[in-house]
Design a protein around this nucleic acid. Structure first.
Length: 273
DNA sequence: GAACGCTTTCCTGCTT
DNA sequence: TAAGCAGGAAAGCGTT
């Protein structure tokens, strides 16, 4: 089964999704990050089928959703067809996960247009689009919260290509067998300040130095993500200190609540985007 | 089931 | 005095 596009993405965004149904507080951590990951292929309209599968894999990975949670055969299409799917099409194709996929592809599609329209201007899309997409409207009941555990699969997990599914599952597990790591969580909060105002801030963006503004609030957020209501900053900071040995973080002497990304931390530099 | 990696929990001592 | 930092030790948990 594959989904037949009913309306275009553009018409969904401009006509059907009025501001009266906006949810400004919808966290966009994962979507924005996904957009950055796919920055190099910023025009999903031109993706091959294989690239669509890669995108699916990346989105599922970033959201810690089991690879078998969506029916892959519903996305047996190229980028052009993918971009033609409406929000309802995504829901129909992937159930609750569809809203996450739609959010991601919407960002990517807009990011690609942004590049094309601005032409030679050397602007980074994430600097503006994270805010722009905060205004995207979501139908009531389909608010995406990355802190809420992944939803149960809606459709039967019967991929059309066993090879692709095997590859999919293997890569997800190899990449991040235990889900999001603490340092990645911290990084994502830092990279999306408009979604988490006043929790952590950059002290020196180019050097990777950052400071906790609300240490206990960050700990609670981390605890919520890990389903651990007893998480405290003291425990979180102990885990942070273990990153020193692995050079994911570096010590910043003499400054409280200040950390610095190390050589083994990835994805925080502007040049990584 | 063992080994391993990552995180959590508890602790003591030190610094700010 | 409180809060935060540093790091040892042990345990829990999931993956391989």
């Amino acid at each position: 089964m594959s989904v037949t596009p009913s309306t275009t993405l553009d018409s969904q965004l401009t006509a059907n999704w009025s501001p009266t149904h906006s949810y400004p507080d919808v966290p966009m951590l994962t979507g924005s990050y996904t957009s950055r990951l796919w920055h190099r292929d910023s025009q999903p309209q031109f993706w091959s089928k294989y690239q669509v599968w890669e995108w699916l894999q990346q989105v599922m990975d970033m959201n810690q959703i089991d690879a078998s949670s969506i029916p892959f055969q519903n996305f047996d299409m190229d980028g052009h067809q993918l971009c033609s799917l409406s929000y309802q099409d995504f829901i129909h194709a992937a159930g609750s996960v569809g809203s996450i996929l739609f959010q991601s592809i919407t960002e990517l599609k807009w990011s690609g247009q942004y590049h094309m329209e601005l032409g030679q201007l050397d602007l980074k899309p994430e600097s503006n689009f994270s805010c722009s997409f905060a205004d995207i409207s979501y139908p009531p009941g389909d608010i995406y919260d990355p802190l809420i555990p992944p939803l149960a699969p809606v459709a039967s997990p019967t991929p059309s290509s066993p090879d692709i599914k095997r590859s999919f599952s293997r890569q997800v597990k190899k990449h991040n067998p235990r889900g999001t790591h603490l340092w990645e969580f911290i990084r994502d909060v830092l990279l999306n300040p408009e979604r988490n105002p006043g929790l952590i801030k950059w002290e020196d963006r180019t050097e990777g130095v950052f400071r906790f503004l609300k240490s206990e609030a960050v700990a609670l957020l981390w605890g919520k993500k890990k389903n651990n209501s007893s998480m405290t900053y003291e425990k979180l900071s102990r885990a942070m200190r273990y990153y020193y040995k692995r050079e994911i973080l570096e010590r910043v002497d003499g400054r409280r609540l200040v950390y610095k990304f190390g050589r083994n931390a990835r994805g925080w530099r502007e040049s990584d985007m």
